[in-house]
Design a protein around this nucleic acid. Sequence first.
DNA 1: GTGTGCATGTAAGGAGTTACATGATTGC
DNA 2: GCAATCATGTAACTCCTTACATGCACAC
Lengths: 195, 195
Amino acid sequence: MTPTDPDPSPKSPTAIKLSPTSYLVLGMVRLGIRSGYAIKKVADQSTQNFWPISLALVYPELARLEGAELLERRSDPRGGRARSAYTITDKGEAALGAWLRSPRVAPVQIRDEAMLRLFLADALGDEDQRTLIRALRERNRESKDALQGEVIPRAEAFESQGLRYVAIAARLSADLLEYAEGWLARLEEEESKKP
Amino acid sequence: MTPTDPDPSPKSPTAIKLSPTSYLVLGMVRLGIRSGYAIKKVADQSTQNFWPISLALVYPELARLEGAELLERRSDPRGGRARSAYTITDKGEAALGAWLRSPRVAPVQIRDEAMLRLFLADALGDEDQRTLIRALRERNRESKDALQGEVIPRAEAFESQGLRYVAIAARLSADLLEYAEGWLARLEEEESKKP
DNA sequence: GTGTGCATGTAAGGAGTTACATGATTGC
DNA sequence: GCAATCATGTAACTCCTTACATGCACAC
């Protein structure tokens, strides 16, 4: 940390800025998900409810992490089809651990069009208000059903490998949605008799 | 909708694409919040938990909505300080109503670094896992306290004007956070004795 | 033999943020 | 007089998404 660093771009393992998305990719590899395609698939069935990711981000991120020596790539073709298999390095484990232990907790960021509509529902008549609440509840129920039917079972498969938090996170998401559903059901009921 | 429109840019009220953010601004004006600055302030105390907005977006959005004749602007200076006061037009009311009534419900989008960390917490030792849960719970508690202490009281002020959903949305957010807090408290307790 | 899934990448664009820039007003 | 708040706007940039482009493998 000298004020005037004589070597601003040292030779190899470039220091890169790591985003939560980077740690997601790093962590996925650590969980044993080795290809970019597989990471995207597993993420769609697990982290989508709190950290979605698109395929077009996974590949450059893998390359970046490899360049920083946090991941190691080796060729792992399936027949004539090329495939890259990644594993986490010691340096990668250290970086992931340091991030998980850092005391700063960023605030949640939510964008929910349906909640925004609820917020502005005073502009609607009684009938449309009830329709809106029902639609919001329906959407929640569908998400919850998907979690309980597909995501949680898959997450529980990790538990046999001693990985417990994949399932814990899935259950928290599902229970939250279930609670919201009940809340909206009560609201719907109140709205249908009171006014 | 003729294939070859002879007048691709008709004279005045330009048709523009409206995003949820547009409707937020439109809806805020409808609630009686008239300046850009005030919209940002009220949003920070109400919609932040499901649709955050930055000041640098409010102003261009107001101008766009005015251009589309969904809002009407008039000058409303305070002393020597310029201020614009907006009101919603009939056309604006119609556009807001149509959006609120549209059956399509977009999925929630959440980015929660803390949940992502929980998901990957298997990489930590027992002690650090418990610290992580506690930090997540703390953050939730703080958000909930802010809602209950500041946001809900302010939202309830709208109720005296017959606007009920501002407060309903706030209560749903707060109750959701409270539920999450209880869930995490139970997890914390289980984790501290079991393993 | 054809559609679905596996697999990897690039390019263009959108939506929103932070930082910058400016200045008046009000309360202490 | 000075800080906090009111008030409006622009510019640069970040992060992420959709769309595009390509091709093998396998099951029906």
